[in-house]
């Protein structure tokens, strides 16, 4: 048995790298998620989100780096992690020949912490009938079943990998609500990877953006949203920009218009921009999470 350390971190990754023969799926990724936090993990398809999650769950050995999940060292005790983690994937491969009740009993046998009362509450809430065969369930219902299986053993950490992909808005809302419930009532740590940025913003305290295996930023959600601004500057006739402001994520010059997206925006940003460049006019634009995400990715693509 591996004892949890007194650390307040649910997940701690230091310089984690995963290399396959040719390509590097995850590059020097470092991340700290405190216990009880809700972390939103966003990035384009193939950015390394699922690879990271599989390493966190101890399913995939890392090429380099150190990891600690709920006090368990990923380089030595990785097989233990799954007992304390609830996991909901994008695609579900629950035994199709089993009945709902059989799946529940099957999974129940693997966890010491399984809570029967909570489990049947969840099943009732989602309208899942124990006699139904898994193969006869709709995609939404299977997702709900997967969420029940992930929550019923009262995991310390709940990992959701694109759980809402391909679901109708009503089911999505139900899933988000349930996850929030579990955050409220049981102080769980949540790790949510998703493309539905509005859901990520609702659920997460902290957001990390990953692109081609590299973590571009990690910031508290509202700080990310209110601190990231787009500046639209109009250049003097025939002039080019001289110096991008500090914290520039992405910028583009098109004719006289110079668009700059900066993080950690302050009033100083504008002052400095004005004094360092030949500008006619400056306008500051607020951005939603979607725009911010896109600018981070665009910026990283330009840099690469």
């Amino acid at each position: 048995m591996i004892q949890a350390t007194s650390s307040d971190l649910a997940i701690e990754l230091v310089g984690v790298t995963k290399r396959y023969r040719r390509n590097t799926a995850v590059r020097e990724l470092s991340l700290q998620i405190p216990k009880g936090a809700a972390f939103g993990f966003i990035g384009p398809n193939g950015a390394g989100k699922t690879t990271t999650i599989r390493m966190i769950m101890g399913l995939l050995p890392m090429t380099a780096g150190q990891g600690n999940v709920l006090g368990i060292n990923l380089n030595s005790g990785q097989d233990q992690v799954k007992r304390y983690v609830g996991y909901v994937p994008e695609q579900h491969f629950i035994y199709r020949w089993m009945r709902v009740g059989q799946v529940v009993r099957f999974c129940r046998s693997f966890y010491e912490t399984w809570n029967d009362k909570y489990c049947s509450e969840l099943l009732d809430l989602f309208g899942l009938d124990g006699h139904q065969k898994v193969k006869h369930l709709s995609k939404g219902m299977v997702t709900k079943l997967a969420l029940v299986l992930a929550l019923a053993h009262e995991p310390e950490l709940l990992i959701l990998d694109e759980p809402m992909a391909g679901l109708d808005p009503l089911v999505r809302e139900e899933i988000v609500e349930r996850v929030l419930h579990s955050i409220c009532e049981r102080k769980r740590t949540v790790f949510l990877s998703s493309h539905t940025l509005s859901d990520v913003r609702r659920v997460s305290d902290v957001i990390g953006i990953i692109h081609e295996g590299q973590l571009l930023t990690v910031a508290p959600t509202e700080q990310l949203v209110s601190g990231t601004k787009r500046i639209r500057a109009v250049l003097e006739e025939g002039q080019q920009p001289k110096e991008s402001p500090e914290g520039t994520i992405w910028n583009r010059v098109q004719g006289r218009e110079w668009l700059i997206t900066v993080k950690d925006f302050t009033s100083n940003t504008v002052e400095r921009l004005r004094s360092a460049n030949p500008l006619q006019n400056i306008e500051v634009i607020d951005l939603g999470l979607e725009e911010i995400f896109k600018d981070y990715i665009r910026g990283a693509e330009v840099a690469a």
Partner: peptide, 15 residues
């Protein structure tokens, strides 16, 4: 309550 409003608005209780 905090929880009730968090679930009703579907946002994180910390928010």
């Amino acid at each position: 309550s905090l929880r009730a409003l968090a679930v009703q608005l579907a946002v994180n209780p910390n928010t």
